[in-house]
């Protein structure tokens, strides 16, 4: 039977793997790793009553404003890249490029806010080895920040290479889908960190 619709325009009930199938080993692996890290964080938090006090005191010194601002930035950037992907599927390269640039700006904003936050913490004398809470706070957020930086690099690659006239080509769309999935991964890992490190009472 002839294929009626191209790879880039599919019906809603047709199932397909976004990006390259093997790539999902990486995504699921990252999810598993961060899931384990969340567990470790909570175990340390509740291990002894003294630990709970240290963690609660440490949490109170964090700025929820910066955390919330970062969450909004990442959520918005996720929305933008979804739109960019849709535009690319429709063959609308220039619009797609604008959306990916907006995504990039939001990601860059995240990095700036994070740097401000670190600078503020370091100025107030909270360092990597201040206590158990700050050890985990710095390491987890630095690891996440490394993911953001990797994601930004991938976004630059997208802006440079993937929004040309033939952006509907299935291979090209697969690359955009892969980077978009990675960017959503960065987003959802931050949601977890924000909930556990900043919001818990």
């Amino acid at each position: 039977m002839e294929q009626i619709y191209s790879n880039t325009e599919r019906r809603d009930d047709e199932r397909h793997v976004p990006g390259e199938p093997a790539f999902w080993i990486f995504i699921v692996g990252e999810m598993a790793m961060f899931g384990f890290m969340y567990l470790v964080f909570l175990c340390y938090r509740f291990w002894t009553p003294e630990n709970l006090l240290i963690f609660e005191a440490g949490q109170r010194t964090l700025s929820q404003f910066y955390g919330a601002l970062n969450t909004v930035l990442l959520l918005t950037s996720s929305w933008f890249i979804v739109l960019g992907l849709k535009a690319a599927r429709k063959g609308n390269a220039s619009e797609g490029k604008v959306f990916v640039k907006l995504t990039f700006m939001c990601g860059l904003g995240f990095v700036f806010v994070k740097v401000f936050e670190y600078a503020e913490k370091i100025q107030s004398g909270y360092l990597l080895n201040t206590d158990a809470f700050y050890q985990i706070y710095y390491m987890y957020t630095i690891l996440h920040l490394m993911h953001v930086l990797a994601g930004l690099t991938a976004l630059i690659y997208l802006i440079k290479n993937c929004f040309k006239d033939d952006c509907r080509d299935p291979n090209n769309v697969a690359i955009i889908e892969g980077v978009a999935s990675f960017w959503h991964l960065v987003d959802l890992l931050w949601i977890g960190l924000f909930t556990l490190i900043y919001l818990m009472v």
């Binding site: 809603d12 047709e14 199932r15 397909h16 929305w79 959503h184 991964l185 987003d187």
Partner: peptide, 10 residues
């Protein structure tokens, strides 16, 4: 919704 897992294989 965003990662399109809704339309991914089972």
């Amino acid at each position: 919704y965003f990662m399109e897992i809704k339309h991914a294989p089972r």
